Amino acid sequence: MDALTDILNTLRMKSSLYFRTELTAPWGIKVPSQGRVARFHIAIRGQCWLRVEDMDDDIFMSNGDLVIIPHGASHILADSPDTPATDLDDVFQEIAYPGSGPLVFGGGGAGCCLVCGEFAFDDRENHPLLDNLPTLLRVTGDQSYNARWLDSVIGFIAHEAASMQAGANAIIDRLSEIIFIQVIRTTLASTKGHIPFLSAFTDPRISTVLSEIHRTPETDWTVESLGQVANMSRSAFSNRFTELANMTPLQYIMFVRLQKASRMLTEGYDSLPAIAESIGYKSEAAFSLAFKRQFGVRPGEYRRLNISSRQRS
């Protein structure tokens, strides 16, 4: 398994469709901020403007454009940068939105159709992949037609959102997750500047090491043995890895091991000694101490808290 796949499997991402919109000018909607959520908007028909909190420039969106706001920042969608925006909750009240079906709002002028949704991430997870994503991820319609995967997926989502047949929301949720993963891959491929942690995936030698760590985190890795995987000297590898990943190789190994342990604690029934051994710890005490440093609680308490959380949900 490659490192990016393993990371994305770890994140416990859950997507959901907000709604399909039918908006007519003049219209403006302000979406409030929300932590641990990445929001997305896809322009299916027409055009609009997007203004994201703490970004200087407004973003123009038209047919086929896709934006993801990874950190849940407050933002405004409108037919024009000059149109006043109404808070989303007030829009719901004004039109008596029933919670399903298209959201119809605006003054009756030029139309715009968006598909809007979000990716929520488990509060238990803090991962440098998410932490270091830029404020806005964007794939324009002309890019999407060059990248046929996105063109096809957006077209399928538009069809399902319009028809809303039985199972449509489940299909849209799965396709939305694919979009999130593919947009991250597109960002990695197209970004020339340095992005902490993410840039490690664009270096072939460091990316190979990441995949080896994720494939067998329990291996008794050393900086020297990882340097051999990268075909680099110990010091050159250590410096390059730390520069790109924003942590040392040994820090990253510990991070991956404990992320794997957290999944085992919540998704399986292995004993603590068995989990400790499976991720490369020689004693349960050492594992417990390291786990508490990363997650704030010891493994047994972490498991109990998550069992209680699942029973309440």
Rank of each mutant, 00 (worst) to 15 (best):
86 T>M: 15
103 L>E: 00
115 V>N: 04
99 G>C: 01
75 H>W: 01
91 V>G: 02
120 A>S: 14
82 D>E: 14
81 P>Q: 05
106 G>L: 09
74 S>W: 03
98 P>L: 03
78 A>M: 01
91 V>A: 05
77 L>Q: 07
77 L>S: 07
97 Y>K: 02
78 A>P: 00
76 I>P: 04
70 P>R: 05
90 D>C: 00
75 H>I: 00
104 V>D: 05
94 E>W: 10
93 Q>A: 14
121 F>M: 11
72 G>C: 02
78 A>T: 06
104 V>P: 05
85 A>D: 06
94 E>F: 13
88 L>W: 13
92 F>N: 03
100 S>V: 05
81 P>N: 06
76 I>Q: 02
90 D>G: 02
84 P>K: 09
110 A>R: 11
80 S>K: 11
76 I>N: 06
74 S>M: 14
71 H>D: 04
116 C>Q: 12
87 D>T: 09
91 V>T: 03
84 P>R: 07
114 L>D: 09
108 G>N: 11
116 C>F: 09
108 G>M: 06
73 A>G: 09
100 S>K: 13
70 P>C: 09
72 G>E: 01
105 F>V: 06
100 S>I: 06
89 D>H: 15
98 P>M: 00
82 D>R: 10
101 G>S: 04
70 P>H: 01
89 D>C: 07
118 E>M: 14
73 A>M: 13
114 L>M: 12
74 S>K: 14
112 C>L: 12
83 T>H: 07
75 H>M: 02
102 P>T: 09
122 D>E: 10
119 F>T: 03
71 H>L: 01
87 D>F: 09
113 C>R: 15
107 G>S: 12
95 I>G: 01
82 D>F: 10
87 D>H: 12
95 I>M: 07
85 A>M: 00
95 I>R: 08
117 G>N: 08
92 F>T: 04
105 F>N: 10
71 H>N: 09
74 S>R: 14
107 G>W: 06
103 L>Q: 01
122 D>L: 00
108 G>P: 09
93 Q>I: 12
105 F>D: 10
103 L>M: 13
117 G>H: 08
74 S>Y: 04
90 D>T: 13
83 T>K: 03
120 A>Y: 06
119 F>S: 03
110 A>C: 02
80 S>L: 01
94 E>H: 13
106 G>I: 10
74 S>E: 15
118 E>I: 09
70 P>A: 08
89 D>R: 15
73 A>F: 13
106 G>H: 09
76 I>G: 05
112 C>W: 04
86 T>L: 15
119 F>G: 01
93 Q>K: 14
86 T>W: 00
78 A>G: 02
